[in-house]
Amino acid sequence: MSDAPPFRSADPVTDRMATFLASIGIPVLAADLPDRCFVPGIRLDRGRLLVDEARMICPGDLLHEGGHVAVMAPAVRTGRAVDASNDMGDEIAAIAWSWAALTHLGLAPEVVFSPLGYKGAAPWLIETFRAGHAPGLPLLQWMGLTLDERSAAERGTLPFPHMQRWLREEPPEAAD
């Protein structure tokens, strides 16, 4: 897949999401994905998203799957081909990350939190984030991606959903 072309969509919202992901370091490549994917039409592959637009059901899945890539430790992100993590912490972090991304892009929450996904919990997730509660925020903060309100105020910066960085980095070496 190294020779796959960058993914481009005729749909402006889908293209905007793919362009954003590429701009933060998550390559989005066009691919023919005839085999079943965990998320229809999207496969995670060594830090990249392979996209078969004809098989994609919810274009907003691009941001959610991008969130999975973003919250992986770099060694994991680039070292394996996976469809999704079975780790609930990764899932919660990816949900919060995708909320931050859709907010950053000015998209309606329903673009990502489609009624077709999240096992029927999409309306609850939207309401929870709109109410100022952020499941996954402690994980994103631990990963060095964003700050809660108190920590942001102490540092004179903006809190979640503003992101300090979009991709997880390796933790700093422990002090001797």
Rank of each mutant, 00 (worst) to 15 (best):
G117F: 08
A81F: 13
F160Y: 11
C58A: 13
V69Q: 05
G41E: 11
L21W: 06
T14G: 04
H68R: 14
L63W: 07
R155Q: 15
P59L: 07
I42Y: 09
Q141Y: 03
P138R: 02
G60I: 05
G117A: 14
I92P: 01
R55G: 06
P138N: 06
L140K: 00
G25Q: 01
A31D: 07
L33P: 03
V69H: 05
S98V: 04
D11E: 10
L63P: 07
G144Q: 12
E149N: 10
P12V: 09
W166I: 04
I24W: 03
P5E: 15
W97M: 11
L145C: 00
S23I: 00
D35W: 06
I126E: 08
G41N: 08
V13D: 06
R48F: 02
L44S: 14
G144F: 00
W97K: 06
D90T: 13
G47M: 06
E154A: 13
P115K: 15
Q141T: 11
H68K: 13
E173M: 10
A54K: 02
P135G: 15
E127H: 12
G132A: 00
G106C: 04
G67R: 07
L44T: 12
A153T: 09
P59H: 11
D87C: 14
D90I: 09
R55H: 07
G79N: 07
I57M: 07
R43V: 05
G117W: 05
I42P: 01
I95H: 14
L50D: 11
V51C: 06
F160H: 09
L105C: 00
L49E: 10
L102C: 03
T78H: 15
A96Y: 01
Q164N: 13
H104T: 05
P138E: 05
D15F: 05
D176A: 11
D3A: 15
W142Y: 14
M1N: 14
L158F: 01
V82M: 13
L139I: 08
A10C: 12
